[in-house]
C-alpha cells in the first residue's frame, strides 16, 4: 500500500495539489457565505456553487481520464506493468489511494451551501457531502474507464466531459424526484391542497370520487378554466398536489450518493475485467511458468518442427 501512496504522489502530486486547493477554496467560500452574508463575499459564494457543480467533472477529467490513457499514449505501460506488480494490482493500488481522496475532497466541497439560506432546501440538493462525494468517486471511475478504452489523453478527457455531464443531468431530470413515492395532499372544492413549507412540488391535478387522479375530459380541457367544468360535471371532487417533504432531503441525498457509488462500482468492475482479459495486457512477469519437467516435453510433442530442428542441431 505504501508503494502506491508513493507512486501516486510521485506521478500525480501536482494534479492532486491543484484539485485540493480548488476544493479548499470552494469549501471556504461556501461555508463563509452561508446564511446570506453579503458584500464582497457575494461573488465568491457564487463561484463556490460553481465549484460544486463542476467538482466531480474535474475529478473525472483530470484524475480519471489520463490515469491509464497517459500510460498507453506515452507507452509507459511497459514500465508500469512490466514489473512484478500486475496491471490489476497497479490499478487497484492507485484507486485505493485516489478513490478515498476524491471522496474526501468531494465531501469537503459539499459542506456548505453558499446562498442557499440558513435553512436546508430542495434547491440546494447538491450541497451535501454525500452527494458530492458520490459524484467524485463516480467521476473517477468514469474517467479511468474511458481512458482505458480511448488510449489517448485528450480524447479521453473530452469523452469523459460529455458522458459525465450526461450522467449528472439524466438522473437529476428523470430519477431524483422519484427515489421514494411522493406524498399527496387532497382538498375538496372548498379549499386548495397545500405543499408543506419548503416541500418540493412534483405534480398536481384533479381527483375523482375514489380520491384517485382523474384525467381532464376533452370538453373541459378546451375551456380556459377547467376547474369549474370539472366541478360542474362532477368528474372530480377536488384537487391534489404531489410533493416530497423537506424531511426527506437528507435521505434523498444519501440515495443519490448510493446510486452514484453503485454506478462507479459497475464501471470499476468493467474496467478491471477489461484490464485483466480483453485489454491485451497480461501480467508480464511470470505470466506462464515453465514447469521444469512436464512442460517442455509437452511442447516438443505439439511442435514437430521444433523437435526436428532440435534433432538436427
Amino acid at each position: 500500500m505504501n508503494t502506491f501512496v508513493w507512486l501516486t504522489w510521485r506521478q500525480h502530486r501536482w494534479t492532486i495539489l491543484a484539485t485540493a486547493s480548488l476544493a479548499l477554496l470552494a469549501a471556504f467560500t461556501l461555508v463563509s457565505t452561508e446564511g446570506g452574508k453579503v458584500g464582497s463575499m457575494m461573488m465568491a459564494g457564487f463561484y463556490g456553487l460553481l465549484a460544486q457543480l463542476l467538482f466531480g467533472g474535474v475529478i473525472s477529467m483530470f484524475w480519471g481520464a489520463p490515469l491509464i490513457a497517459r500510460e498507453l499514449e506515452e507507452r509507459t505501460y511497459f514500465v508500469a506493468w512490466g514489473q512484478d506488480v500486475t496491471p490489476t494490482k497497479w490499478l487497484r493500488g492507485k484507486m485505493l489511494v485516489l478513490g478515498p481522496l476524491a471522496v474526501l475532497l468531494g465531501a469537503l466541497v459539499g459542506l456548505g451551501d453558499g446562498f442557499g439560506g440558513p435553512q436546508e432546501s430542495w434547491g440546494m440538493f447538491e450541497a451535501s457531502p454525500f452527494v458530492q462525494g458520490g459524484y467524485a468517486i463516480f467521476g473517477l471511475a468514469l474517467g479511468v474507464f474511458i481512458g482505458l478504452l480511448s488510449r489517448h489523453v485528450v480524447t479521453a478527457m473530452a469523452a469523459t466531459l460529455v458522458f459525465y455531464t450526461l450522467a449528472r443531468v439524466l438522473p437529476a431530470v428523470l430519477l431524483r424526484d422519484h427515489y421514494l413515492p411522493s406524498k399527496r395532499d387532497i382538498a375538496r372544492w372548498e379549499s386548495t391542497p397545500v405543499v408543506p413549507h419548503r416541500g418540493l412540488e412534483i405534480g398536481n391535478g384533479f381527483v375523482g370520487a375514489d380520491l384517485r387522479p382523474v384525467s381532464v375530459p376533452d370538453k373541459c380541457a378546451e375551456l380556459p378554466n377547467p376547474n369549474s367544468c370539472m366541478r360542474n360535471t362532477k368528474t372530480a371532487i377536488g384537487t391534489y398536489v404531489d410533493y416530497q417533504p423537506i424531511e426527506r432531503l437528507g435521505l434523498f441525498q444519501f440515495i443519490e450518493f448510493i446510486v452514484f457509488v453503485l454506478l462507479a462500482g459497475v464501471l470499476f468492475a468493467v474496467t478491471f475485467r477489461l484490464l485483466r482479459r480483453g485489454g491485451g495486457w497480461k501480467p508480464s512477469r511470470s505470466h506462464r511458468r515453465i514447469d521444469s519437467v512436464a512442460e517442455p516435453a509437452q511442447t516438443v510433442q505439439s511442435t514437430p518442427d521444433t523437435a526436428a530442428a532440435h534433432a538436427e542441431g
Binding site: 505470466h287 506462464r288 511458468r289
Partner: peptide, 16 residues
C-alpha cells in the same frame, strides 16, 4: 507478455 498471441503459446521460466 504485453501482447497475447493469436495462436500458439509462449512460456518463460521465471521473471521477465
Amino acid at each position: 507478455g504485453h501482447l497475447p498471441p493469436e495462436s500458439g503459446h509462449t512460456a518463460v521460466a521465471g521473471r521477465v
